[in-house]
């Protein structure tokens, strides 16, 4: 079963790198969308079926935490697993993101294997 993924990061370069890591990890990738901030991501979610969201926290416009709060308001979208890929490492902000329902956290910089391992874990749980 192929999974549709939404990658949210204000750096186009980083979005490409994440996509490449996801592809190389062997993850069964269906459609992939990219967004430069939370607002763009919300708009994509409104129009496309997404199985997994990979997002940064620090973004101009709507940041990652603000996006998570918006997603939580929607009954369908709040079921979509969200994984943070971010340089943010402070305990308080990670706790805040966990309270908003993230399923995993990958700190930047990352090895592609870290993406593979966490995606496998999360999508198996989501399928169950």
């Amino acid at each position: 079963m192929a999974y549709n993924v939404l990658i949210v990061d204000d750096s186009q370069t980083m979005r490409k790198v994440i996509l490449k890591a996801v592809t190389l990890s062997g993850f069964d990738l269906g459609d992939c969308w990219e967004a430069g901030d939370g607002r763009e991501a919300i708009s994509i979610l409104a129009n496309h079926w997404v199985d997994l969201i990979l997002t940064d926290l620090h973004m101009p416009g709507m940041n990652g935490l603000e996006m998570l709060r918006e997603i939580q308001k929607d009954e369908i979208h709040r079921q979509v697993p969200v994984v943070l890929i971010t340089t943010e490492g402070s305990e308080n902000r990670i706790q805040e993101a966990l309270a908003l329902g993230i399923k995993g956290y990958i700190p930047k910089p990352f090895h592609p294997e870290a993406i593979r391992d966490i995606l496998t874990q999360i999508m198996v749980k989501a399928d169950v």
């Binding site: 620090h58 971010t86 340089t87 943010e88 490492g89 402070s90 305990e91 308080n92 902000r93 700190p107 930047k108 910089p109």
Partner: peptide, 12 residues
């Protein structure tokens, strides 16, 4: 991001 997360691990 990494540097300042280490300099203040609680609040960043």
């Amino acid at each position: 991001g990494n540097l300042f997360s280490l300099l203040d691990k609680t609040n960043g």
